[in-house]
């Protein structure tokens, strides 16, 4: 708050106080949101003895990464005691194809709905949008049956399929709204130049789509990685994603509750989405507000 302490500042006292109030509120809000993370972090590096004797926010007397190792390698989930690492990779193997497929299909859908409208395409698009508002729970039973018919129930492929289908409504909406802001004349010019449907997409629109790809990938990665409901319903045992495993880990009660292991596992489960946001977050904001592309 240099402006408040700087004597050369020509702001009035009222403005300075106002500024301080604003910063004060922001700092309190930041602390409020960061405290749980802080508690998780310090708890995960404490020993069990430490946890038992200290309180929630007391600093660890002895720092150890044992809980992290246990969580990753040997914590018991159900009857198997192999840690969460297998489930972590399950999630990775689920998220990458699901995000890639739903984003690419969404981009093509958005391209069609904005640049190659056909009779009834508006109705079609509106129906697709309804998909954004359908609660997860509603589609569980029909989806289970569909997966059964396809012979991919309780498998990673089935889970990926569910996420792709559910995500399409969102990705299509993102891309369609972005492409609407790109002038139709670009497409017309390319058609006259002799480019076809896919060539126009590939050569003209895709190179302009970086911001919306970032938005879409962040959104989908976060949604799919963090999903619990689809994971718990449409997968079993070895194919479960990390969110489900985390829940099972915490609920597996053999003797003492190891809070430090639980916390470490929870942080591990949260790291990928945090990373995605830290790396690409500024593009996310930029992409959300990206307007028309200037020719």
């Amino acid at each position: 708050m240099s402006s408040a302490s700087s004597p050369s500042s020509n702001q009035s006292a009222g403005a300075i106080i106002g500024r301080m109030v604003v910063y004060g509120i922001l700092i309190i809000a930041a602390v409020y949101f960061l405290i749980p993370l802080f508690v998780m972090m310090i708890t995960s590096i404490k020993t069990m003895a430490d946890i038992r004797t200290g309180n929630l926010i007391s600093l660890p007397r002895e720092v150890t990464l044992d809980a992290w190792k246990t969580a990753w390698n040997s914590a018991c989930i159900g009857v198997a005691c192999n840690g969460i690492k297998g489930y972590f990779w399950n999630s990775v193997r689920m998220v990458i194809p699901a995000v890639a497929i739903s984003t690419i299909l969404g981009a093509i859908n958005g391209y069609v709905f904005s640049k190659w409208r056909f009779k009834g395409s508006e109705v079609f698009f509106s129906l697709l949008l309804v998909g954004c508002f359908i609660p997860f729970q509603v589609i569980l039973l029909p989806m289970a049956r569909t997966l059964g018919q396809f012979g991919i129930s309780q498998s990673l492929v089935g889970l990926i399929f569910v996420h792709v289908v559910y995500g399409l409504a969102f990705t299509t909406l993102f891309f369609r709204n972005f492409y609407v802001s790109i002038p139709d004349e670009l497409v017309k010019a390319a058609r006259i130049d002799g480019a076809g449907f896919f060539r126009i997409f590939w050569r003209i629109l895709l190179p302009l789509s970086k911001p919306i790809f970032v938005v879409c990938i962040i959104w989908q990665t976060t949604q799919i990685w963090n999903d619990f409901l689809f994971g718990v319903v449409f997968s079993t045992g070895d194919t479960q994603p990390i969110t489900v495993a985390l829940n099972n880990l915490v609920n597996t009660s053999t003797g003492v509750k190891e809070y430090n292991v639980d916390m470490a596992a929870a942080i591990i489960a949260a790291i990928p989405t945090l990373l995605v946001y830290i790396v690409a977050g500024k593009y996310f904001l930029r992409g959300l507000t990206a307007g028309a592309v200037k020719g």
């Binding site: 002038p183 004349e185 670009l186 017309k188 010019a189 390319a190 058609r191 006259i192 130049d193 002799g194 480019a195 050569r203 003209i204 190179p207 302009l208 592309v293 200037k294 020719g295």
Partner: peptide, 20 residues
């Protein structure tokens, strides 16, 4: 006949230059 085969060229009001 499709636009590309009509042997025409068009200049648009917004120029429609490919930005990339």
């Amino acid at each position: 006949v499709s636009p590309k085969d009509r042997d025409i060229a068009m200049v648009f009001q917004s120029y429609a230059l490919y930005p990339n």
